[in-house]
């Protein structure tokens, strides 16, 4: 178990008259080396949960275990830098958080903060840039001269450069074009397969993760209301509804057709090939 939340609650006390519940006795266990999709409507507690993973937020109640760190509620000791190094957090629109005058300096920022030598840090930066597919020639440029897709890659690389074991990203594909989205997901998936890292992606697009993530977690009202595979999730209409998601096109089409034919909705991987195969089988059995 690489991450575990046990009965974790968190309240926002600073928004108006009554404290707002961020997490409400949340229980969650995530395994190492997998790609995990976290889904949920706005305000469901996804981002709050993410920020508990490296101690930016501390639980009011319950226990958060990350790698070999235990973060108990009420413990106000300083967060060890080692935790921050091993759990990389990529915030929404991370390109807006680039601040140095060259991309390279920005990427070096993390590794140097964690006390690496110049040579180690430079090597880590090159590796990170390679992993996200950022051309090395761009390293010497100002981040503000890059295209939006490149800026996003640079910002992800800036976190990846510290070589975290866990990489958590808050809507990393927001406002990217479809091809860049797919490219980023593929690369993140590669991190889990090639490097054994754990990658957690908060998203509100099910389709882009359906073929990559191993594990799906749906959050509502600060609690986990679903954890399982894509195959299980796409058929749970109420869960999808709660998370502001739509069943993928293939499931919708298969569902309607099954209803018209008066047969049970088939369980299948939500992609075009699977649907076509099912339909072909259907015709076969008919004739």
């Amino acid at each position: 178990m690489v991450i575990s939340f046990e009965e974790v609650s968190y309240r926002y006390r600073d928004r108006g008259m009554t404290p707002i519940l961020g997490l409400d006795g949340l229980n969650l266990e995530l395994e190492e080396g997998r790609m995990i999709a976290v889904l949920g409507a706005p305000g469901s507690g996804k981002s709050t949960m993410l920020q508990h993973m490296n101690g930016l937020m501390r639980a009011d109640e319950g226990l958060v275990r990350i790698l070999d760190f235990n973060l108990e509620s009420g413990d106000s000791r300083k967060i060890p830098p080692k935790l921050r190094q091993r759990v990389g957090l990529v915030f929404q629109y991370p390109e807006q958080q680039l601040f140095e005058d060259t991309v390279e300096k920005d990427l070096l920022f993390g590794p140097l903060n964690f006390g690496w030598s110049e040579a180690e840090a430079a090597e880590a930066v090159r590796r990170a840039a390679f992993f996200v597919g950022l051309d090395e020639a761009l390293l010497a440029q100002s981040p503000f001269k890059l295209s939006s897709g490149q800026m996003r890659k640079a910002a992800v690389a800036a976190v990846l450069a510290a070589d975290p074991d866990i990489l958590a990203l808050d809507e990393p594909t927001a406002s990217l074009d479809p091809a860049s989205r797919e490219d980023l997901m593929q690369r993140l998936h590669g991190l889990t397969k090639a490097e054994g890292k754990t990658v957690i992606v908060v998203t509100h697009r099910l389709e882009e993760l359906v073929s990559y993530a191993d594990d799906f977690v749906v959050i509502k009202g600060g609690r986990v209301i679903f954890q399982g595979t894509a195959r299980e999730l796409v058929h749970k209409q109420e869960v999808l509804e709660e998370a502001g998601l739509m069943a993928p096109s293939s499931v919708r089409i298969a569902g309607t057709l099954a209803a018209q034919l008066g047969i049970e909705t088939p369980e299948m991987l939500p992609d075009a090939a699977a649907l076509a195969a099912w339909y072909a089988g259907l015709l076969e059995s008919q004739s």
């Binding site: 074009d177 479809p178 091809a179 860049s180 797919e182 993928p248 096109s249 293939s250 919708r252 089409i253 075009a272 090939a273 649907l275 076509a276 195969a277 339909y279 072909a280 015709l283």
Partner: peptide, 29 residues
């Protein structure tokens, strides 16, 4: 050129065609 993926409907039509089922090339679900 626009960095887009084919609509799902079209992907499905093409997958079906490969399996010998020809419903034409449609783009709307």
């Amino acid at each position: 050129r626009c960095r887009l993926k084919a609509p799902f409907a079209l992907q499905l039509c093409r997958e079906l065609k490969e399996r010998g089922i020809d419903i034409g090339e449609l783009v709307r679900e």
